[in-house]
């Protein structure tokens, strides 16, 4: 069984391409799925790979409805790590490793140093607080 990937051209139009599982996709992203690999939701037949500069969060809704929980839907700020771990039936640490293997980046922490500065004040305020 080949892996069918859905891709977008520069105009955003979707097209499909059949690839041998485990090979490198046209955009250089290694395919995670191997032939016969079983996820919580069945055998992988289709995964979504973006060939554009658009973020996953913009295109995630077009993931195959047959397997809506492709790991590619992990986009920081859009779905939490805990939620996607739940969907995949993995523990948290296993999910972190799966995301890293897929070549996706975790994106933890504040957006800006200013946001982190505000948090410092919160830490110091709570250090002075009494027990709940």
């Amino acid at each position: 069984m080949n892996v069918v990937i859905s891709q977008q051209d520069s105009s955003g139009k979707l097209f499909k391409q059949s690839l041998v599982p485990g090979t490198v996709s046209p955009n250089g992203r290694m395919l995670l799925a191997e032939e016969g690999q079983v996820s919580k939701h069945g055998i992988w037949e289709e995964i979504f790979v973006s060939t554009t500069s658009r973020k996953f969060e913009d295109i995630a809704p077009t993931v195959s409805p047959k397997y809506p929980y492709d790991i590619g839907i992990y986009a920081p700020g859009r779905i939490s790590l805990g939620k996607i771990a739940e969907l995949w039936g993995l523990h948290y640490e296993e999910m972190i490793e799966a995301i890293k293997r897929r070549g996706l980046h975790l994106d933890f922490g504040p957006r800006t140093p200013e946001e982190a500065d505000l948090e410092l004040e919160s830490i110091r305020k709570h250090m002075r607080r009494k027990s709940h």
């Binding site: 920081p76 939490s80 939620k83 994106d107 933890f108 922490g109 982190a116 830490i123 305020k125 709570h126």
Partner: peptide, 22 residues
């Protein structure tokens, strides 16, 4: 640490930080 969780904290006025702050 998680971005989406942090966003919800902000919406709910929950004070937060991460391990970097600690």
């Amino acid at each position: 640490e998680d971005k989406k969780g942090r966003k919800i904290c902000q919406d709910m006025n929950v004070e937060k930080t991460g391990t970097y702050g600690i």
